[in-house]
């Protein structure tokens, strides 16, 4: 038995996102949910620093590395209010697995703001720039997004479903995906081409992979689990299947604004 193993592709350059400063207002729905109301942009940015220093080690860059918790989406095990959040940070939780952190008042205000702002200092501002309604029309028409992407049960499944994309991606990331998809594509979403020993060619997109098998959704929208030992060819595309958009920048802003409204099944 010989293990078929594919070398990772050459590493792409890293794009560092630029933090946009400016007046920000928390989304009304979020403020209502949390009972607290406004977080200043300064606090959110300060919180970003606190988060990277103190929290990211365990919670991960997106706040989703601990089971049952997704900090950027407001999914917690026990926390409901901001007071709960402060208590967990100050006192620790989960029988010592979450240690206690001694933060200054400003740091505490910042980290709570950062978490409540969905890890997204610039996001709320960006959603105010474009027009979501125009963005929806562009998404479904001229932008050709809906040719591959599915939203709320409508559209093909070959590209990732975007029904909750506004909850899991920052505006910067969404914009980059539209304008320069090659540098923004997540590795798992690279198009793959498999040829089996039976000479069947399978095109699709990966959902999961390990040393011995790969799980894909193929171009016919079928879930396929393929053993690598059954393959004669396994190609992972360097480039995404989509090209950089030809939309104008204000149109891109509209599409981003629309995407930010897509927050999954409420």
């Amino acid at each position: 038995m010989k293990l078929l193993f594919l070398k990772p592709r050459s590493r792409l350059s890293i794009l560092l996102s630029i933090i946009v400063t400016g007046p920000l207002v928390i989304q009304p729905s979020m403020a209502q949910d949390t009972g607290d109301h406004t977080y200043s942009s300064e606090a959110i940015l300060a919180g970003l620093g606190v988060y990277n220093r103190q929290c990211a080690l365990c919670h991960g860059p997106n706040g989703s590395s601990i089971d049952g918790i997704n900090l950027s989406q407001g999914v917690f095990r026990t926390v409901v209010t901001d007071d709960d959040l402060r208590a967990v940070i100050a006192d620790g939780s989960a029988a010592g697995r979450m240690p206690s952190f001694l933060l200054s008042t400003d740091e505490m205000i910042g980290i709570v703001a950062y978490i409540r702002a969905g890890f997204d200092p610039e996001g709320i501002g960006a959603s105010g720039i474009g027009d979501p309604a125009r963005g929806k029309l562009l998404f479904e028409g001229k932008g050709e997004c809906a040719d591959c992407h599915r939203v709320n049960g409508v559209g093909p499944r070959t590209a990732p479903d975007l029904s909750n994309i506004g909850a899991i991606r920052s505006p910067t990331s969404l914009q980059r995906n539209i304008v320069d998809p090659a540098t923004a594509l997540l590795p798992i979403n690279r198009p793959v081409r498999l040829v089996t020993r039976n000479e069947e060619t399978i095109l699709g997109r990966r959902l999961n992979e390990d040393s011995y098998s790969v799980q894909i959704i193929d171009s016919n929208e079928k879930l396929r689990s393929v053993r690598k030992s059954d393959l004669v060819t396994y190609e992972i595309g360097d480039a995404p299947s989509k090209q950089p958009t030809t939309l104008a920048s204000d149109e891109v802003a509209d599409v981003v604004a629309y995407l930010l409204t897509l927050r999954g099944l409420q």
Partner: peptide, 30 residues
Amino acid sequence: GGFSVLAPAPDAPTIRIGRTNPINAWTNEV
């Protein structure tokens, strides 16, 4: 201070201290 794990794209999932997810969305590129 802190660190981040080098990933091929911004916001891409990366390797954490342990694994609790049955899906490997970071891939061997990380």
